Simulated assay, not measured.
Amino acid sequence: MNYGSLDIERLLLMALQNLGLAAMVGALLSAWWLRGPKSDWQVRASAKLALVFRMSAIVALLSSTAGFWVHCALMSETTLLDAWPAVRSMLVKTQFGHIWAIGASLLLCAVVLSFKPTSGAGIPCHPLMWLLIGGVALAKSNAGHPVDAGILSLPVWVDWVHLLAISSWVGMVLMAAYIVSPGMLRARSTELSGGARYVQAMSDAATVALIALFLTGAFNGWRGVSAPENILGSSYGVVLVFKLALVLVAAALGGHNRFFEMPALLASLKGSSSAIQTRQLKRFATVLHIESWVLIGVIAIATVLVSSPLPGTE
């Protein structure tokens, strides 16, 4: 694979869009787990999650738009400044352009709705946001390799589940590491019963997401490489193996938190001293921070994988 400057720019924009989508999913999940009667730290965390959702939606929309423009410039072999005719032609005449426009429109709706005033500090129009994100993910799945089998075909739906699973896992880890855990560390020890529910819900959801990720990833990966010799004999296969390695590292970190750190953390949140709670929270959050950076690497590698030619088409 030989990448020019525009190719690299397009990949960076795609990765940024994927990261923005993951943050949106993670913010929605975290806001749901913090619902109900809230202590002061939960109110503050919910307000931050709403802000993260709004900013992530804007980033996802802008990076998607810029990435589409760069893609059109690459396809027409023109400069960015001269790409408008190609952009217009892509939007009007191609299936790819139509699908991108649908996804971008849904993202725009999410951005607009995220500014809707609410009586509380949470994310507005919560159920509708899930429908919009599901639509955006489906548009992305119909714009990649799986659409070769047809729009809304089985490979597209499998890829859709895969995209939502990785977005959920990455998003919930990011929100837990950088929004919720710091809020819990600043809370009074008597306010952390909601934190225990959050940690348990996040761990259960991460397990489900990981199972879905491996099942759909196995389907997508085998469909992509198509033959054993292509696993290490093609650029697509090599990138796929690298992605799998990072996923396994992240899964090991998540497993460590679930089976070694979380039991002690949950016990401390239900009635230990403030010092013990702080120590257990810091241990749990440290692993989350490491896991978050590994998962950002997964997002980056997955972006390269989606843009890599399938074996036999290089």
Rank of each mutant, 00 (worst) to 15 (best):
W32T: 15
L164V: 12
V52N: 00
P85K: 02
L51A: 07
P127A: 12
C125P: 07
S46N: 08
K116S: 13
A149N: 11
W41F: 10
M90F: 10
K140W: 15
F68V: 04
L132K: 03
H71M: 03
L51K: 06
L113T: 04
A83E: 06
K48F: 00
L91R: 05
D82H: 15
V87S: 03
A57G: 14
S64F: 02
L49H: 02
K38Q: 13
C72S: 10
M55V: 14
T94P: 07
M55Q: 10
A101E: 04
I133H: 00
P127T: 11
G135E: 10
R44H: 14
G134V: 05
L108H: 03
L154Y: 15
S141T: 14
A45R: 03
A60C: 06
V136N: 04
V147T: 10
S46M: 08
H126E: 13
V136P: 06
V87F: 01
A73G: 06
A86S: 13
V87I: 10
K38H: 00
A149P: 09
W130L: 01
V52L: 05
K140T: 14
S114C: 08
Q95Y: 09
L128I: 15
S46D: 11
V59T: 12
L62Y: 03
H98A: 12
R35N: 14
A86K: 04
P37V: 01
M129E: 05
V43N: 07
L138C: 07
A83C: 06
K48P: 00
D159H: 07
R35K: 15
W157A: 07
L49T: 05
L154I: 15
L131I: 13
F68K: 05
A47W: 07
L62V: 11
A143W: 01
P146L: 07
V70R: 05
V70M: 03
A149D: 14
N142Y: 05
T118H: 02
W100A: 02
V52P: 04
G67S: 04
I102V: 15
G122D: 12
K116Y: 14
S119H: 11
L138W: 12
A60M: 03
K116L: 15
S64R: 01
Q95R: 08
V92F: 09
C72P: 08
S105F: 09
A143V: 06
V87A: 03
T94R: 05
A121Y: 07
L91M: 09
V158G: 08
V147P: 08
V43S: 07
L163A: 12
A104M: 05
S114A: 12
H71Q: 06
L154N: 09
W130Q: 00
F96L: 05
G103D: 04
V111Y: 03
T65S: 14
A139C: 08
L108Y: 06
G103P: 01
L131V: 14
N142D: 07
R44N: 13
F68C: 02
G36L: 02
C72I: 05
P117Y: 06
F53L: 02
I151E: 09
W100Q: 03
A143Q: 01
A143N: 11
A149M: 07
S89L: 11
L128G: 08
I58H: 02
G135I: 04
S89V: 10
V111F: 00
G120Q: 13
L163Q: 06
S76F: 02
I102D: 02
W130S: 01
R88G: 00
T79E: 10
Q42S: 08
A143S: 15
R54K: 05
S46R: 04
Q95V: 14
A47Y: 07
P37M: 00
